[in-house]
């Protein structure tokens, strides 16, 4: 039994649930959504390389690298997601189980483009006050906060931090 899929027990038709457990029970499911397409119940599953759209009588499997545009529209409850495969646009709405943004982030991570500044965090003074370094530091902070570079690299590249140590 797949514990990720188990959250759907009692939420969907028993046969549909059994079919999902049978087909995908042994797979590693990273994220899952339960919503509707044209009032018909649909389960979206995300594995490492696939997006699976399962309905009671029909299942479609999309290789992730061929999924064009995976868009968060709104979060649960009553969430909405949209993705494009070939020329067809799939729109899943009334999502009531799962987290829509987490699903998008699992498959196609999108990252904030701006850096966050807060003086309330320890050691996080607004370095932008130094105009010589503002643009570069803003880029560095964005990369740090997106997990692209580490704290060590941020400190190392940051011209406004003394290089006395590591």
């Amino acid at each position: 039994m797949n514990v990720k899929i188990a959250v759907l027990e009692n939420q969907i038709n028993a046969d549909f649930y059994q079919t999902l457990q049978l087909n995908y029970g042994m797979r590693k499911i990273n994220s899952l959504l339960l919503g509707k397409i044209k009032q018909k119940e649909v389960v979206l599953l995300a594995t490492k390389n696939l997006l699976i759209l399962a309905q009671k009588d029909n299942t479609k499997t999309f290789p992730l690298n061929q999924v064009r545009k995976l868009t968060f529209i709104k979060g649960t409850p009553n969430g909405e997601i949209q993705f494009k495969f070939g020329n067809h646009v799939y729109k899943v709405n009334q999502i009531r189980i799962g987290r829509v943004f987490d699903f998008v982030q699992t498959l196609k991570p999108t990252l904030p483009l701006e850096a966050n500044y807060t003086n309330t965090n320890r050691g996080e003074n607004n370095y932008l006050s130094n105009p010589d370094h503002a643009v570069e530091i803003d880029r560095l902070r964005t990369a740090l906060q997106n997990g692209k570079i580490s704290r060590y690299e941020y400190d190392d590249f940051n011209g406004s931090i003394s290089k006395a140590g590591k």
Binding site: N30, S31, D102, Q105, T106, P109, L111, L144, Q145, N146, G147, I149, S150, R151, Y152, K166
Partner: peptide
Amino acid sequence: SMFIEDAGTWNTPN
């Protein structure tokens, strides 16, 4: 001898 410390965030649920 030398310490190196590092830290960071992670941006996907995986």
